[in-house]
Design a protein around this nucleic acid. Structure first.
Length: 208
DNA sequence: GTCCGGATCTTT
DNA sequence: AAGATCCGGACA
């Protein structure tokens, strides 16, 4: 492939379909691994490109999910059209990037926890807060579509090999089985201690 | 290695 | 009052 900047036009045929996100959150969280995100913080700025290596699934009435109390001003987007960004602010300093999943009316989102820099990114993206800070993703990108003009999600055929699935720990009863997905052994997965737990549990799954 | 606190805003 | 975080410092 050429050497120039990443342009969405070069990848139009490999964009994921808009209805890709209208699926069960666990499935989207799993299959997002290895996909590329193209992003620009402003329309007049260039795109950077980065590959998803770690995700987390939140949906329905699980107490771990923002959606479990029903629709509020903040969480409304989780119940809305799939294929949009849900960006929220936490701990007074971090923006979190999520992709809205499930058919409209059903709440779900995938937290993008870590990515591998591919083009135009200097720093590491090995944590959800570091990722948004490095890329300039903020709440002003809330509700933006993942099919442009700020975000594009691309399947370039990359094969991820082994995937580690882990249940989140420390969440109250009623949680569904698996939550976090990461490419095994990838240097850019986040260093959270839950990941170490996950490794011990050996919930390893092969992804096509 | 593990544990703890501080940064400091949004939501309920 | 707690939180879908991160970093640096203390201690072992």
């Amino acid at each position: 492939m050429g050497s120039r900047a990443f342009k969405p036009e070069d990848w139009l045929d490999k964009q994921v379909a808009a209805n890709y996100f209208a699926k069960p959150t666990l499935e989207v969280a799993r299959t997002l691994l290895g996909k590329l995100i193209l992003f620009r913080p402003e329309l007049e700025k260039p795109f950077s490109a980065f590959r998803i290596v770690e995700t987390e699934a939140y949906f329905g009435e699980d107490p771990a999910s923002h959606s479990y109390r029903g629709i509020t001003p903040r969480t409304e987007v989780m119940f809305g059209e799939p294929g949009r960004a849900y960006v929220y602010f936490i701990y007074g300093m971090y923006e979190m990037l999520n992709f809205v999943t499930e058919p409209e009316g059903k709440a779900g989102a995938v937290l993008i926890r870590a990515c591998e820099p591919v083009f135009g990114v200097q720093s590491r993206l090995n944590g959800p807060g570091k990722l948004t800070r490095a890329l300039g993703i903020t709440r002003k990108h809330n509700r933006e579509r993942l099919t442009g003009p700020y975000f594009y999600v691309i399947d370039d055929g990359f094969r991820v090999g082994r995937v580690l699935e882990s249940p989140r720990v420390g969440i109250s009863k009623g949680q569904e089985s698996f939550w976090r997905f990461m490419i095994e052994g990838h240097p850019d997965v986040s260093p959270a201690k839950e990941n170490k737990l996950a490794r011990r549990m050996k919930n390893q799954v092969k992804i096509k």
